[in-house]
Amino acid sequence: MLDGIISGLVSGSTYAILAVCVVVLYRLVGVLNFGQAALGALGAYVCYALVGAEVSLALAVFCGLAVASVTAGFSGWVLARWLGEPSAIVRSVGTVVLLILLLTAGFRLFGDSPRAMPSLVPEAAFDLGGVRVSLSTVIALLVTIAIAGALSLLLRYTQLGIRLEAMSERPLTVQLLGVNSRQLAVAVWAATGLLSTLAMLLIAPTRNPTFESMSFLVVPALVAGLLGAFSNVWIAVASGLAIGAVEGAGARIEGLADYRGAIPFAIIIVALIWLRRREVWDAAR
């Protein structure tokens, strides 16, 4: 059981980082990005395609991160430019469009031919109280916590964070105050593209996922974000790790193993019924 939980933490870290991206983007730009994981998948696949073409790993990773950031930033610009005013729902349908486009492009560019997906972390493992823990699990956890910590500090204590927060609440007002909200939106998008790629590079070596399965890792991430009501970064991180751990543990339980992919949905239904047991109304007035 414990083995399973530990092995699930790598996936959990990926969900957690993606969830942080989703939450931050939703809080700052007001877009729930269904294409978040697909952006990461694009970056990761560019990276592995370059590795396959004998480019050094470091350079390939750099290019992957760059491509994902630029694509994400461009998507952010397009959404801010043309869907800046409409409701969050409309903008989110916009990201469904983004996901479909990214999947089509991904299938086109990368097909399903296998790629070596070298790990960024040296392969090592050690025993901890009878459980084998791999170095990549530890690194993945550390990266996750570092990202979440840095972002929450940035949001709470810096001028930029306060501006960003204000932007999501009153984009027009902030624009009138002379803050270029579109530029900021693009920056936030680009940053989440970069982080999503990082998340994918963590999970890819153990799972060697296809472009499609990578893109749908956004589902556990969205579930994790939803548990934190798309506002609390730390709840999102904890939920992401927990979903990974439960999936890992579920793999060891006879009868449940086959259906553990459905765990996030079960969690979200139970959690929502509990969290929303009291009536809360939509935006006032």
Binding site: P114, R115, E123, P205, P209
Partner: peptide, 15 residues
């Protein structure tokens, strides 16, 4: 396994 999974599977075997 399909192609990509075969590669990932062997990687885990080695690890």
């Amino acid at each position: 396994a399909n192609e990509p999974v075969a590669v990932a599977f062997m990687n885990t075997v080695k690890q």
